[in-house]
């Protein structure tokens, strides 16, 4: 199996981190992964996005143009990449920042108020983790435990206080995504 994903949002929303944790989880499951961010001045305040590929075989092109999965944390990301999602693909979108919505036949679209959910979980900073939960409620690209383990590894030392909020956000995304 090969999953090609784009995660996108305003700089600072943590879209790149979504891709990073999925890639880390995939790597720890023994899969081939690549993580290719957009870079440069546009990232300051503009949209930041990352191509992530998780595959059973070596990743040829790390550049994703027709994603199987799109995580859109804001409207510009949804508008920019939504039309490119593969038929039968999945879109996870943050309804709090996508007032314009998005309509497309043939793809699974999940809207969740991620900012709101994140605040309920204890910190606006975990908005991106809600999206990971939601994504994993609809796709088995990686296992939820792998993501949590990766988080644990990274945060346990540096920011243990944030760990709980992160886990909560993932669980909440998972539960609401299924609904």
């Amino acid at each position: 199996m090969k999953y090609e994903m784009i995660c996108s949002g305003f700089g600072g929303q943590g879209a790149l981190t979504v891709g990073k944790f999925l890639a880390l989880a995939g790597m720890n499951e023994g899969k081939h992964v690549s993580w290719l961010p957009s870079y440069g001045p546009e990232m300051r305040g503009g949209t930041a996005n990352v191509s992530t590929v998780i595959s059973d075989r070596p990743v040829a092109s790390p550049l994703v143009t027709t994603p199987d999965i799109l995580v859109a944390l804001n409207q510009p990301s949804l508008d920019k990449f939504g039309p490119d999602v593969r038929e039968g693909g999945l879109i996870i979108a943050n309804s709090d920042l996508c007032p314009g919505g998005f309509e497309r036949e043939g793809v699974d679209i999940v809207f969740l108020p991620m900012n709101t959910i994140a605040k309920e979980c204890g910190s606006i900073k975990v908005t991106n983790m809600v999206s990971i939960g939601a994504l994993l409620s609809r796709s088995d690209v990686v296992k939820i435990e792998s993501v949590k383990n990766a988080l644990q590894e990274l945060l346990a030392e540096k920011k243990p206080a944030l760990l709980e909020a992160n886990f909560k956000a993932i669980d909440e995304g998972l539960a609401r995504g299924k609904a």
Partner: peptide, 10 residues
């Protein structure tokens, strides 16, 4: 190139 420099892989 910029892609190999910026990209993360295992």
């Amino acid at each position: 190139d910029g892609m190999l420099g910026q990209m993360m892989e295992p």
